[in-house]
Design a protein around this nucleic acid. Structure first.
Lengths: 223, 223
DNA sequence: TAGATTGTTAATCGATTAACAATC
DNA sequence: TAGATTGTTAATCGATTAACAATC
């Protein structure tokens, strides 16, 4: 009975890659770039892991989700692996990014130098305050929030950062989704109800500090 | 034989709480504060979970690491649970924080309003640039980096944020550790070699964006 | 060749979910 | 009481680690 029934379960699209693996991939990339700058031509899963506090097995397993990048007996060629990881993450090209909110944090993000080297460029900034609109800050043109959809379409922007006050964040996220944005990084300290097909990452600075206080309060005092 | 040998294995200090649990705890706190503002007196693991995209079981399990806070048949009293979670995280008091680096990002952190309500106050800022030292920015006094140990001791500061360029970050971390800091939040895009007894959290803005590009590149296009 | 290191499979470990008696 | 919801145990699921044949 049933000799032809479901010899293999249909593979679910593609074995989904755990989120933790993807974030480690970014750390590998960062570390590899430092290694190249320090003159290393090759590295190993052991070296890469120990730089980041991971086991060598974990490094190899993570990379194995995406293919074979190493040479048995040799290790990994740094620049080759950098290119591979960039390809996997999609940062082998430059992504224009929209920034919404030109308060303290927004303006700091406009001036942040760390984006360009990793493949990101803030291509447009938006605010509701008419006084902030129309000028260029740090070389980035600023627009009224009402022009969001148009500017995003014209500039083919897929990513956005939300740096508005908490009460406005959900509305901004809704507008970004409607404008066709595919990924949102949210700095407002609220949970945003997600939209289908739009990826979200939240960065809550107070929450990060709370992780520290928990450790300080709960760990044994220093030796 | 051996009727008195190790009846129970010695409990390892205290069953360590997974990091993921602690970060969800912060999310619960944030959500509870919103619920109170919206007029809720009580909530349930189901409500709290669905607001954050977690199962009800997970909410209850997470809280169970720390005690019993709910009422069968009723749920949780919001303000009561808020106080409990604050106690667990250690944010039932106000923590003075040191900020090192007064570039773009550093100055934005000085002006960030989201810290105070959660129990944090930037009490001192440091920079190597003499032009930036001695004045108060956003009401926060600024000092030379060389005065770090002294100011940290006098003001009883336990937490610090690093917002200096990547090449300087490790040295700053070393100095902070030497000055007796217990927890460091690092915004520089480098892995910092940790110090014994000093907790670290890293926030790399480019890496967060990379998590988005990975999803955009690898997920099926929108419907 | 001997030594190093990969990719991968199997074993272990830990975290999440489901289920349910106890409680209000 | 009936309905709701907790805290907790057991079952499931997934991720990490260890081990090793294959390879350079």
């Amino acid at each position: 009975m049933g000799e032809i029934s479901n010899p293999k379960p249909i593979p679910p699209a593609e074995a989904a890659v755990p989120k933790a693996v993807v974030s480690r991939l970014s750390l590998y990339l960062r570390e590899l770039q430092h290694l190249v700058r320090d003159g290393y031509e090759t590295t190993s899963s052991t070296q890469l892991g120990s730089l980041l506090g991971f086991t060598d097995a974990q490094v190899r397993k993570d990379l194995a989700y995406f293919g074979q990048f190493g040479y048995p007996g040799i290790g990994y060629r740094c620049s080759e692996l950098i290119n591979a990881v960039k390809g996997i993450l999609g940062t082998d090209r430059c992504w224009p990014v929209a920034l919404v909110g030109l308060g303290n944090l927004g303006r700091a993000l406009l001036g942040y130098k760390g984006f360009e080297t990793q493949g990101f460029r803030i291509a447009a900034a938006f605010d509701v305050d008419p006084a902030k609109v129309g000028t260029a800050i740090e070389g980035v043109p600023t627009y009224a929030l009402d022009d969001l959809a148009e500017v995003v379409a014209v500039k083919k922007i897929k990513l956005a950062m939300i740096a508005v006050p908490a009460p406005a964040a959900q509305d901004v996220a809704d507008r970004l989704a409607a404008a066709g944005i595919d990924g949102i990084m949210n700095f407002a300290p609220v949970t945003i109800t997600p939209h289908d097909g739009v990826s979200m990452v939240g960065v809550d600075l107070a929450i990060e500090l709370e992780q520290l206080t928990f450790n300080v309060v709960n760990h044994q005092p220093k030796p």
